[in-house]
Simulated assay, not measured.
Amino acid sequence: MSFQAYLDNIQAKTGKSPDDLKRLAEEKGFLQNGKLVATVKATEVRVWLMSEFGLGHGHAMAIWSLFQGKHD
């Protein structure tokens, strides 16, 4: 599955675009000025995405990767 397919599936499941999730992550303190806060761990973000949006591990980690700037 391509990275874009992951993002499309996440948006279909949650109703949130990657930009929406970035904005919400900023509100949670995970991102600052669009950049991942250095002290934030993958587990924190994964647990948030899984509990708040019902994402599975793989989809949550795709968002983590997006937050790290590995995909734009």
Rank of each mutant, 00 (worst) to 15 (best):
residue 1 M to K: 11
residue 1 M to N: 12
residue 1 M to A: 12
residue 4 Q to Y: 12
residue 5 A to G: 10
residue 5 A to C: 09
residue 6 Y to V: 04
residue 6 Y to L: 12
residue 8 D to C: 10
residue 8 D to L: 13
residue 9 N to V: 12
residue 10 I to C: 01
residue 10 I to E: 00
residue 10 I to Y: 01
residue 10 I to Q: 02
residue 11 Q to W: 04
residue 11 Q to I: 02
residue 11 Q to D: 07
residue 12 A to S: 13
residue 14 T to I: 02
residue 16 K to W: 00
residue 16 K to L: 04
residue 16 K to D: 00
residue 18 P to E: 10
residue 20 D to V: 02
residue 21 L to Q: 00
residue 22 K to R: 13
residue 22 K to I: 01
residue 24 L to F: 09
residue 24 L to W: 03
residue 25 A to R: 07
residue 25 A to V: 07
residue 25 A to Q: 05
residue 26 E to N: 08
residue 27 E to Q: 13
residue 27 E to M: 09
residue 28 K to I: 02
residue 28 K to R: 15
residue 28 K to D: 00
residue 28 K to S: 01
residue 29 G to L: 03
residue 30 F to D: 05
residue 31 L to F: 13
residue 31 L to K: 06
residue 31 L to G: 07
residue 32 Q to V: 14
residue 33 N to C: 08
residue 33 N to L: 09
residue 33 N to I: 07
residue 34 G to R: 07
residue 35 K to P: 02
residue 37 V to N: 04
residue 37 V to G: 02
residue 38 A to S: 14
residue 38 A to R: 14
residue 40 V to T: 15
residue 40 V to R: 13
residue 40 V to I: 15
residue 41 K to E: 11
residue 42 A to W: 08
residue 43 T to V: 15
residue 44 E to Q: 15
residue 45 V to Y: 04
residue 45 V to C: 03
residue 46 R to N: 10
residue 46 R to D: 11
residue 46 R to P: 05
residue 47 V to F: 11
residue 48 W to Y: 10
residue 48 W to L: 06
residue 48 W to F: 06
residue 49 L to V: 09
residue 49 L to W: 10
residue 50 M to A: 13
residue 50 M to R: 13
residue 51 S to R: 15
residue 51 S to G: 09
residue 51 S to A: 13
residue 51 S to E: 15
residue 52 E to F: 07
residue 52 E to S: 14
residue 54 G to C: 03
residue 54 G to N: 06
residue 55 L to G: 06
residue 56 G to N: 14
residue 56 G to Y: 03
residue 57 H to E: 15
residue 57 H to A: 13
residue 58 G to R: 09
residue 59 H to E: 15
residue 59 H to S: 12
residue 60 A to W: 00
residue 61 M to G: 05
residue 62 A to F: 01
residue 62 A to P: 01
residue 62 A to C: 05
residue 64 W to G: 03
residue 66 L to C: 05
residue 67 F to E: 01
residue 67 F to T: 01
residue 68 Q to D: 03
residue 68 Q to E: 11
residue 68 Q to F: 02
residue 69 G to H: 02
residue 71 H to Y: 08
